[in-house]
Structure formats: structure tokens, C-alpha cells
């Protein structure tokens, strides 16, 4: 259970970014302007604004949240309350690759924890921790909406990696170490598996699509 330890609670943390760094480019500013136009009131733009900032700065320390609030012209407290509500906004610095391993509902019974523990052993860190080289953070995730291809994980709020096996994890980790992000996997509609070879989209980068396992190969 996550708890906030009173003694360690710091209301005035040292900023990570200097005021020189805390600026949006004109492109980013016009993107923000675009977000404001998407909603009848500026507050609506806060989530998009925080996403943009997180992509830019990697995480959302307070000074970045304040920057977004100021840019959108909304109360900082409001933005901060929102940022801390959602799990995908990183309030702490994380590794380059955040591996969100789903251990929820379906994944837990399809080996989600095995994958998590395998990763923990492999990277020498526990869920919630970041590797010393700053490359990996492992997290235990709630259902990511891909239960049909359990166990699965998500990389840094982005790419899904489906149907994990230990060897798939091995190659994923070594690819990521080389800076190679796996390609988008189009998950098959099993009803099309025989007739249309999976009927997968052909406009995504990867051609190594996931194939519905026809038999129980993956289960011992």
C-alpha cells in the first residue's frame, strides 16, 4: 500500500529544472493554444498540457506543473491536484523505459507475476524501482485493456508488448538497451485467423505481428 510518510513529506522540494529550462518553444505554445481551443474553458486543456510537458521534460516535478498551469492560465493548485490524481503522470523522475507490467485481473492468472518477477530478477530491481543506469523502471500496472493478449506490458506510457514470454522479455530488454523501441503490434481478431491470416493492419511499422496461439503452446 502506497503511503505518504509524514516525516519525509517535502512541501518545498528543490526544483529539478532551472528557469532557463522552464520554457516552452513557440511550437509547444501553439500546441497549448490548440488545447485551449478544444474546450469551452481553459481548465479542460490541463490534461493535454501535462502530457505535452511530460513528453518534454520526462516527468512532472512541481515547477513543470506550475509552468503548464501558467501557460494555460489556470490555478496551479488545480493543475497539481489533477496531476497527482492520475498514475500516468510521473511526479518523480523515472527510468528512460518505464515497464508497466500488468498483473491485474486476467494477466495475474496468465503469468503476469511470472513476467514481473522475471524482469525484476533480470534487471536487479524491484517493482517501483529504477535501475542504477537510469534506463529502466519497473512498475506493477492495473489492467491495461489488452487482457486477450495477457501477459503484457507497456513501455513508458506508449507501446504495448503482448503475449510476453521470458524470451520475449529478453529480446525486449536488449532491444531497449540498444535504443530500439518495439514496433506496434496489431492484435489479431481470432475470427480472421484462418481465413485472412489475422486480418492485421498493414500500415503499421512492424510486420512481425502477434499470432493468436492456436493451441496451448504457451501454457505448460
Amino acid at each position: 500500500m502506497a503511503t505518504n510518510n509524514g516525516a519525509q513529506f517535502n512541501r518545498h522540494p528543490e526544483p529539478t529544472f532551472s528557469s532557463d529550462q522552464l520554457v516552452f518553444t513557440s511550437d509547444e505554445k501553439s500546441a497549448m493554444q490548440g488545447y485551449l481551443e478544444m474546450y469551452p474553458e481553459p481548465e479542460g486543456a490541463i490534461m493535454r498540457g501535462l502530457w505535452l510537458a511530460q513528453e518534454k521534460f520526462g516527468f512532472l516535478p512541481p515547477e513543470v506543473i506550475r509552468l503548464v498551469a501558467d501557460e494555460l492560465g489556470i490555478p496551479y493548485a488545480r493543475a497539481y491536484g489533477v496531476a497527482t490524481f492520475y498514475t500516468q503522470y510521473f511526479k518523480q523522475k523515472k527510468g528512460t523505459y518505464v515497464l508497466d507490467v500488468c498483473t491485474c485481473f486476467s494477466c495475474q492468472v496468465c503469468g503476469g507475476y511470472d513476467i514481473l518477477h522475471y524482469l525484476e530478477d533480470k534487471l536487479g530491481i524491484k517493482a517501483g524501482e529504477t535501475s542504477e543506469d537510469g534506463l529502466f523502471t519497473i512498475q506493477e500496472a492495473e489492467c491495461l485493456g489488452a487482457c486477450g493478449s495477457a501477459p503484457m506490458l507497456q513501455i513508458t506510457n506508449g507501446r504495448y508488448v503482448h503475449n510476453l514470454t521470458e524470451s520475449k522479455v529478453d529480446s525486449l530488454v536488449s532491444d531497449l538497451k540498444d535504443g530500439k523501441m518495439p514496433a506496434f503490434e496489431s492484435v489479431t481478431l481470432p475470427q480472421d485467423e484462418t481465413e485472412m491470416g489475422g486480418n492485421r493492419r498493414d500500415d503499421v511499422e512492424s510486420l512481425e505481428y502477434y499470432k493468436t496461439p492456436p493451441v496451448a503452446e504457451t501454457f505448460e
Binding site: 486476467s106 487482457c147 486477450g148 481478431l189 481470432p190 493468436t212 496461439p213 496451448a216
Partner: peptide
Amino acid sequence: GISGHVNRPGVYE
């Protein structure tokens, strides 16, 4: 959306 301990999990219409 069928998941879990079946041979062919996935979305079926």
C-alpha cells in the same frame, strides 16, 4: 472479449 485460460483468447463478435 475472452481472456484467461482458453486456447484462443481475443475479441469475438
